[in-house]
Write a protein that binds this DNA or RNA. Structure first.
Lengths: 248, 248
DNA sequence: CCAAATTGTAACCATATCGTAACAATATTT
DNA sequence: AAATATTGTTACGATATGGTTACAATTTGG
């Protein structure tokens, strides 16, 4: 699957930069424009690749966001480009109400970048094909142990486990990389929030709690003395060690 | 695993020097640049080795840190380079808030060097697993003796050996440089933790333990009297010495 | 605002790991 | 070959590591 191309249109340069940077970091192709006119030129440019999504500020000097949207909707080439409006004031929100039918979504300023990214993901998901990528992303499984990252839940044989957030994240990370050994430090960095500072032993206890809840799969969370923890399935058997008792 | 290459970009020369010195002391390769433009040139220079992490000041004359970050994110070659932002003022902190999602981390000035080093370690730890680098040298092998650095394990003919951490690290280092002779001192420095101080004889015992577990490959760990130890395959035969006894 | 759930820490124990010393075996030098 | 230096092996105690439980602190939910 190719990367999605997203255009940001906003007269505030800082905002453009922030959005662009974050979109790029999130793995999209992103370009930013400070006016509707510029953006329009870019979109209409037959050289440039097709655009998959527009983040469009409503209130801009010159051509407004609405006007740009209308232009695009009028053109067969561009009418199916999804648009997420960025709206500054409540006053605009009203107008947006009417427009919203044609829009794919809108975000009210001030917004958090996280929020925008979520909308972007949602819209692209909705419009785009169901790529196997994003499907496997939310379903993770080993045998009858399933993880549904959408519902932040796990089940064994269909029976739901009630995992706490820590346990869930732990399991998810380990299950995502079967066989990989994570040091306690790595687990702390990747499962626990950045600001908290806790003992490495904390990992042990949470692993223990997780093991208990995992019942027969509990044994899949193995500790590798001196290294850390790892999820191992049956396939990776430890039974047949090459360096077993020398019977000579 | 090779040393990580870290670039420091800050217009304050003193700060650059301090960070560079400390990074070097911590065992990284570190270079410092006083402007985003310089840094960009260095990163884009096809001659120079790949960069593993960027410590990037936000506010700089000329190209800002954010702009440099955007440039890098836009380029496929450089977009996965982790970035830690160094930000000076609270004013910037706001903007940074926006960038924070896409950034790998950020540190607010004034910061303690210790803090920066911690972040560096954390980010490198977090990203290490996915870098193309570690993908390639994740698997190490000699004939049917395989080392999987992800699972911190080794197998012979597919059968897993249970190596302790010391044994594992020893084997890994030696196997990484077949034919190279390591003195005991070198082995101590490279596989034992920095702070511990142990006898050179300790190496011998651990080599012995490793040999036993390696079964038929045990003989590949040869001692070179007076020099140290080395991993040698069959190809490197010691049979044909020029100055041998002519007993036939 | 209270009760329950979640979570980190300390403490205890069992076990694994490891360094050292002592001695045996081997290699090197004379 | 004898003398010496180097390396291999073993046993044992010290230490580190990991599992478990209890408990206090905090968060969550009603």
């Amino acid at each position: 699957m190719d990367k999605k191309r997203i255009l940001v249109v906003d007269d505030e340069r800082d905002l453009c930069d922030i959005l662009r940077f974050n979109l790029l970091s999130a793995g999209y192709l992103a370009e930013a424009f400070c006016s509707a006119e510029e953006a329009l030129r870019a979109i209409r440019n037959p050289q440039s690749p097709a655009c998959d999504l527009l983040l469009l500020d409503v209130m801009m000097p010159g051509m407004s966001g609405f006007e740009l949207a209308e232009c695009l909707k009028a053109d067969k080439q561009t009418m199916s480009i999804p648009i997420i409006f960025l709206t500054a004031k409540d006053a605009e929100a009203d107008k947006l109400q009417g427009f919203a039918l044609g829009a794919d979504d809108y975000v009210a300023k001030p917004f958090s970048v996280r929020e925008v990214l979520a909308r972007v993901r949602a819209v692209l998901n909705r419009t785009a094909d169901y790529s196997p990528q994003s499907m496997t992303d939310r379903q993770l499984a080993y045998e009858e142990l399933l993880i549904d990252s959408e519902g932040k839940s796990a089940t064994i044989d269909g029976r739901p486990l009630s995992l706490t957030r820590t346990e869930y994240e732990l399991l998810r990370l380990l299950l995502e990389h079967p066989g990989k050994v994570f040091s306690r430090q790595q687990l702390l960095e990747r499962v626990w929030p950045r600001e908290v500072i806790v003992t490495e032993r904390t990992v042990d206890v949470n692993i223990a709690r997780l093991r208990k809840k995992l019942n027969r799969y509990g044994a899949c969370l193995v500790s590798r003395t001196g290294f850390g923890y790892s999820f191992v399935g049956r396939a990776m058997n430890k039974g047949e060690e090459a360096n077993e008792e020398e019977t000579d």
